[in-house]
Structures are given as structure tokens and as C-alpha cells.
């Protein structure tokens, strides 16, 4: 249904830690692997071994540079998939009802058998979270691994998105952001998690944890640097003798 539910029972989503993401693309590829083999049509690739290889991915990692006012430029790796917005414009524009937001957990999905591939939802999404599969002609997007997170054929501990399970650095967290007591909500509170493009009014469920301050001294800058015990070797040996005496 292209109407958004007025509220959802849960707000399942991801919390992505920009302070920890090393930009390894593991989440990108595990997502591709899982979603090629599972939900809906496979994620196809065109010109796979040719001049312009291009395929459908539900999760991509960008790299940005930030130049602070003082100090060295910083590099930030930035994974991005569907943010499962509460006010998801991609859903309301859909003419067919293929796009919908699940009432029980807030996951935004495309029902591929209804999708006509008009592309409007991708236009409506501010974040570039939807990609039209060129072979199937249907809209693809992150499913939050809806076919994993409740899957009784998977061991309990594996009932989490493929990208979260694989992330080597532990930069991706999954949980209910509607529940203030959940680990993800606490993490967001602790680390000042943010929304992307809040001005778009989409109310994303996924949150990003900003990078911690960089290039700052860990010890009190006012604390003295190392106090010399000696300036040259002979003085040093005197100190050494005294110190060894005490050991």
C-alpha cells in the first residue's frame, strides 16, 4: 500500500558507525550475495566482464574527505543503504502499491510482482537507496534482510542482516530504534547518532554515528612532556645506577 502506516509496531533499522567503518566493502558484497540468491529477482550485472560493468547493489560504500578549519583533512568511509524512513516519500509516490512500509516493523519493501518499474520511487528517495534492476525491470532496495531476521531456518544468532553479520569492524548495528531501551537506541543516544538530510523530512530510521574528534592529543596537552632524567649518556648511567638500586 502506498499509504504509509500511521505508526509501526517496531522501527527496525541499522546504526552505522562512521568512526569505525574502514571502508572495506564487505557489507556491499555480502548484501549482493545474499540478495542475489534470496528475496526477489537476483541482483543482475550488465557488461559483467566488459568495458562498463554495472550491476544492482542495495548497499554501497562512498568515501568522503572532510577538511576541518584547522589540521589535516580526514577521510570518512560512508556506507549507505535504505534508511527505512518513517515518512518514506518513495512509498507514497508509488502508483502501483508495490512499495510499502511494513506495519509490524517499519521495513520498506518493494513487492516485485506489482512493480511496473516506473522509477518514481527512486526519484523520490533523497538518498539513492533504490536501484532499478536492469534485467528484471523492477525496483530493488535494501530489504533489511527481512528473509533473514525472522528466518527460523537460521540459528538465532544469525537472524540479522547479512551486512551486519559480515562487517569485520563491527561498524554496523541492527535493532529496534523505536525501543528506547534497545542496544541500538542506547548507542545512538550515547554517541549522538544523526539523521541524514533531516531537512528532507523523511525521518530516517537508520542512524549514523559521527566520527569521533580526530588528531587530538589523548593526554592533557598542558601536562609536561617527558621530563628528562639526563641529557647525555654519562648522566643517564648515573640515573640508571640509582634506579636499578631501587628495583
Amino acid at each position: 500500500m502506498t499509504q504509509l502506516p500511521t505508526s509501526t509496531e517496531k522501527k527496525l533499522g541499522l546504526v552505522i558507525d562512521l568512526d569505525t567503518c574502514v571502508g572495506c566493502h564487505a557489507c556491499v558484497v555480502s548484501c549482493k550475495g545474499w540478495n542475489t540468491e534470496n528475496y526477489g529477482a537476483p541482483l543482475s550485472d550488465q557488461n559483467a566482464y566488459g568495458a562498463d560493468p554495472t550491476g544492482t547493489f542495495l548497499n554501497r560504500v562512498h568515501s568522503f574527505e572532510v577538511q576541518p578549519e584547522r589540521g589535516a583533512a580526514q577521510t570518512i568511509h560512508f556506507p549507505k543503504s535504505c534508511l527505512h524512513c518513517e515518512d518514506a516519500p518513495c512509498v507514497t509516490v508509488c502508483p502501483t502499491g508495490a512499495s510499502y512500509k511494513r506495519v509490524e516493523d517499519g521495513i520498506v519493501l518493494v513487492n516485485e510482482t506489482d512493480c511496473i518499474g516506473c522509477g518514481l520511487c527512486a526519484w523520490a528517495c533523497p538518498y539513492g537507496a533504490r536501484e532499478m534492476d536492469q534485467k528484471e525491470g523492477v525496483m530493488k532496495k535494501c530489504t533489511l534482510c527481512v528473509d533473514r531476521i525472522y528466518n527460523e531456518n537460521l540459528p538465532e544468532e544469525d537472524r540479522q542482516p547479512a551486512c551486519v553479520r559480515t562487517c569485520p569492524a563491527g561498524a554496523r548495528h541492527f535493532g529496534d530504534l523505536g525501543d528506547e531501551t534497545s542496544d541500538v537506541s542506547k548507542l545512538v543516544a550515547e554517541r549522538g547518532g544523526i539523521d541524514l538530510m533531516p531537512e528532507q523530512g523523511t525521518k530516517p530510521v537508520n542512524k549514523y554515528l559521527p566520527p569521533r574528534p580526530k588528531d587530538e592529543a589523548a593526554i592533557d596537552v598542558l601536562a609536561p612532556f617527558l621530563e628528562p632524567v639526563a641529557e647525555e649518556a654519562t648522566g643517564f648511567l648515573g640515573w640508571l645506577d640509582r634506579t636499578l638500586e631501587k628495583l
Binding site: T56, S63, F64, E65, Q74, E131, P210
Partner: peptide
């Protein structure tokens, strides 16, 4: 605002997510 990094300084793209294009870059 897109990256949420604006408060840290001036943001520029260093590397795109894939070295080639994709549906999004072609379409939008």
C-alpha cells in the same frame, strides 16, 4: 547534510562507491 559531516568541515567526495557508473548515476 547529506553525509551529516558538515559540522566537521568542508566535505568532498574522495572515491565513489564503485569505479563505474550505476543506475543512480545514470538516472539521477
Amino acid at each position: 547534510t547529506a553525509t551529516g559531516l558538515g559540522s566537521l568541515g568542508k566535505v568532498r567526495l574522495f572515491e565513489g562507491p564503485h569505479s563505474g557508473g550505476n543506475y543512480l548515476t545514470r538516472e539521477m
